[in-house]
């Protein structure tokens, strides 16, 4: 199986601290791998190292067996990257931008034109292809960038926060595109939107302060949490503290119980009897993320902060 492997990668910027510390993991290079983390967690640094744009201070990495340092030339044949804050060049139309990018990748003119049109059609941006990029909406601009890398022959695509700043509808459209794209590409995605990772990713890595805190499928990440079920009380009703687990109570009356599956079932039966409106779900990625990075929720909790989940 083709794999993405990082071995003890560290990165220290000159005059700064460590952006990455001993990052060590291996995942199948298929589907979507989402890297989530707070601002400054090291997501972009790791992405740039893997996309051969930045050298690590120590450690090594490979994609499909090709080393990102010694095999950069070969790797660049199969990768494409949309960096964070990348924009289609203002003075070019999407057609000109995608066409130029494909020429940079070494396509002949005929192939580049055909592939640019094909990618635009797939992303639903054909009607904007001859409009100057500066006149396009933010969502369309991002789609142009995704179309640009999608039009290429690259089988590994790096997308660094591709949906940042998009409205919910544009974001959802881009998610649909990525869902289709992942069928025949390996997408390395970084995002701040946990919902995005939850919806799209086959595997998720959580990076915090340059360290990889957790890695796995959503179910595997839930398995790392002591209390993997969540009950959110939707009525104005004061719930008793659970036998197992913790209760989170916000100043605005928000109540959430995190507990085991058995206890969640017991509590839910009680709530049904009393006619209390509630929702019961496995923990969301949001909850898991907060647990793993140990970021205190702003709401006041009855339980011990560290033992919340």
């Amino acid at each position: 199986m083709q794999m993405l492997t990082c071995k003890h990668i560290s990165k220290k910027y000159e005059g700064d601290g460590y952006a990455l510390r001993d990052v060590n993991f291996s995942v199948p290079a298929a589907g979507i791998f989402a890297l989530i983390g707070r601002n400054g967690a090291g997501k972009t640094t790791l992405t740039r190292i893997l996309a051969t744009q930045l050298s690590p201070t120590s450690g090594s990495a490979s994609i499909n067996g090709i080393d990102v340092m010694s095999g950069a030339g070969s790797l660049r044949e199969i990768i494409a990257s949309v960096p964070q804050e990348a924009r289609a060049i203002n003075w070019l139309t999407p057609r000109q931008f995608i066409f130029s990018y494909l020429l940079w990748r070494g396509y002949g003119h005929g192939d580049a034109r055909r592939k640019a049109d094909e990618a635009a059609r797939k992303l639903g941006i054909s009607r904007f292809m001859d409009t100057a990029s500066r006149k396009l909406s933010g969502g369309t601009k991002r789609k142009v960038l995704v179309a640009t890398v999608m039009a290429s022959e690259a089988s590994v695509i790096f997308l660094d926060e591709p949906t940042t700043g998009l409205d919910p509808l544009s974001r959802s459209e881009l998610w649909d595109t990525l869902s289709r794209l992942k069928k025949d590409h390996f997408i390395f995605l970084t995002t701040h939107y946990l919902e995005e990772a939850e919806r799209l990713a086959d595997r998720i890595g959580i990076l915090e302060n340059g360290r990889l805190m957790a890695l796995g499928t959503l179910d595997e990440l839930r398995g790392k949490v002591k209390y993997p079920y969540s009950i959110k009380i939707l009525s104005d009703y004061s719930v008793a503290k659970p036998r197992k687990g913790n209760m989170i109570k916000g100043v605005d009356g928000f109540q959430q119980i995190v507990t085991t599956e058995d206890e969640a079932n017991r509590i839910s039966r009680e709530l049904i009897k009393k006619g209390v409106r509630f929702s019961m779900n496995p923990l969301s990625l949001d909850d898991i993320f907060y647990y793993i990075v140990k970021k205190p929720l702003e709401e006041e909790s009855y339980g011990d902060e560290k033992e919340r989940y």
Binding site: Q53, I79, A80, P83, Q84, A86, R87, I89, G106
Partner: peptide, 15 residues
């Protein structure tokens, strides 16, 4: 710096 073009080209077969 404004369009991140160099990074896009670095991660491509163009040297």
């Amino acid at each position: 710096n404004d369009f991140k073009l160099q990074d896009m080209v670095v991660a491509s077969p163009t040297g």
